[in-house]
Design a protein around this nucleic acid. Structure first.
Lengths: 335, 335
DNA sequence: CTGTTAGCGCCTTCAG
DNA sequence: CTGAAGGCGCTAACAG
């Protein structure tokens, strides 16, 4: 700024005015200063600004895994909402590790970011609550707010599980396998709750009607094979599978095929997320769609609102929707 | 820091020493200061540090689209390499828009980031060169360095195209369609060059042997249908399709099916990227694999090296590899 | 080993 | 409308 001021033959504070309150500067002076800026190659210094008290142009985003299409999509929503405000997203993946989550949040707080959007994997939210109190606003994503005094945006996972199960029940299935990730992701467990509710509502006993199986998210072939074996070995054998996400369903589909079963004739399969490829599989996958992009968009929106005077924390809950395609059909026993 | 110093009964600079050079502080004092820090809830202020001259803990990453699996994977590589250094990634998507790329880079530079990793869509790299000269190191990703004085890491796209084409030629195909994105992505064009080279090497005329088609990356159904029609209408009709990426190949596969053709009996299809789902399609997709994660990892590595004394700019080129599966076979005319 | 001091770049009163 | 001055939190000399 000093250099610009010198070249333009004005004082630094005039340059400051050109930057922050251009309307206050004489047009002629303004022009001269702007020319000087390009001549000198002036670039505003963000850190100095935040030190001075201007809100940071950076928002943190802490998700399970940036390379996972679901979270990548959420991040695009965040990014796009923030772009209007010339804000940028500082990302981090927790990889399901609570320690890593803490580390990332700490790093973010040290950067004095405008706020943080978190899809927490650590069930203990007190750290987030404190961070918020200390002055870094926090918005929860894909996690119910509970009794926390924070903004949150989520999808009704229980409903999602229920939709999947009710669809299968309506087709006549009475014994259903539920495939979760190998480690407990809260959202996946909530969906299972929805499945159980639907089963109970249909007058079925959960012990009788539900078969649990697990496979890791990374999905080695072995894991898949084991999960499929587990499902096929259950007595009586289930006639349908609900999977924790579409990628998992893809694997299961493959494993089922390898085991010589036809989908949906011998086994129905339901996915979750409605990723792009779901519609293009053969058979096209019945799945539960979530408004991922909007999730991120809304979260960023809430976060920007945090700085407003008189802000009160809110929770937004989106509804998932069932997308019926061809991987589900009545069980063979009924035909 | 003042508060911490007060509580611990020392001066600010002792607190500073505890933070930056703990070995210089008496163990007893150290302990007392650390206790005071947790008591006060002290959080280091990053922006103040960079103002003072400490290198920023933030690295920028500007890619075409964060939600695109290819770039998401590259970003994970960047993130993981940076995690060792307690560095974070500030991301932005250009969406194929040169103006947006400029804007993002500007914003990043204003944040005084440690450096920037860019997959440039703007063929004009002078802006990047200048940014680098101004003091923000730049590493190019997925783009040849050319005569630029920058570090770069790329995959040999020409070779990738060549591998795909040579595979088809070896199977006996003599007329091949090449599907690009609707807008020119440089990498996709380079692959086409590789295809042309392979055709020429086989003694074929490119005009005769190659049919060009386009479809948008977003991939509306109509676009796909049009591309497929264009391919099927060409006379003589091609017997194989090379697609700009796996997602595109998925669409084409679907379009071909809808048109009543069987893959690979009536038409061979080759994808690009080897995304997770490629192996699970039916038929499993023949495709060209790229080391995406390593691309990002290496780029971050080069960037961290930029700050070292005596650094000279380097270019790293990875080799793609052909993954043969079941979507390719000899053309029907040969059977 | 600990305390004092100056200044990084910017913004915002306040005085001219 | 423009210029001068102070301080945000931190670090690196340097003095004690």
């Amino acid at each position: 700024m000093r250099a610009v001021a010198h070249v333009a033959g004005v004082s630094v504070s005039t340059v400051a005015n050109v930057l922050s309150r251009p309307s206050v500067v004489a047009p002629e002076t303004l022009r001269r200063v702007q020319e000087a800026m390009t001549e000198v190659g002036y670039v505003r210094h963000g850190p100095a600004r935040v030190l001075r008290g201007v809100p940071s142009a950076i928002v943190g985003s802490v998700m399970l895994d940036l390379a996972n299409p679901f979270y990548a999509q959420v991040n695009r929503g965040i990014e796009d909402r923030l772009a209007d405000q010339d804000c940028l997203v500082l990302v981090g993946s927790t990889d399901l590790d609570a320690a890593r989550q803490r580390r990332l949040l700490r790093l973010l707080e040290e950067q004095a970011v405008r706020g943080v959007i978190v899809a927490p994997i650590d069930p203990d939210l007190t750290g987030l609550q404190e961070m918020s109190r200390r002055g870094t606003p926090v918005v929860l994503v894909d996690h119910p707010r509970g009794r926390m005094d924070l903004c949150a945006v989520a999808v009704d996972d229980v409903l999602g599980g229920r939709l999947a199960a009710e669809h299968l029940l309506a087709l006549g299935h009475r014994r259903i396998a539920y495939v979760s990730g190998v480690v407990g992701v809260a959202a996946v467990d909530r969906r299972r709750t929805g499945v159980c509710e639907a089963l109970a509502d249909a007058g079925l006993s959960v012990e009788q009607a539900l078969v649990d199986a697990h496979m890791s998210v990374g999905g080695s072939l072995e894991e898949t094979v084991k999960a499929v074996e587990r499902i096929l070995a259950a007595v009586p054998r289930p006639t349908a599978v609900i999977c924790f996400n579409d990628t998992g369903a893809l694997e299961i589909l493959h494993g089922l095929e390898a085991a010589g079963l036809r989908v949906p004739a011998d086994m129905s399969v339901v996915g979750y997320d409605d990723l792009r490829f779901a519609a293009r599989l053969s058979p096209p996958l019945t799945t539960v769609a979530q408004p991922t992009y909007q999730l991120g968009y809304a979260a960023a929106d809430l976060l920007l609102g945090e700085t407003q005077a008189g802000h009160t924390h809110r929770e937004i809950v989106f509804q998932p929707s069932l997308v019926v395609r061809s991987s589900t059909a009545p069980p063979a026993t009924l035909l």
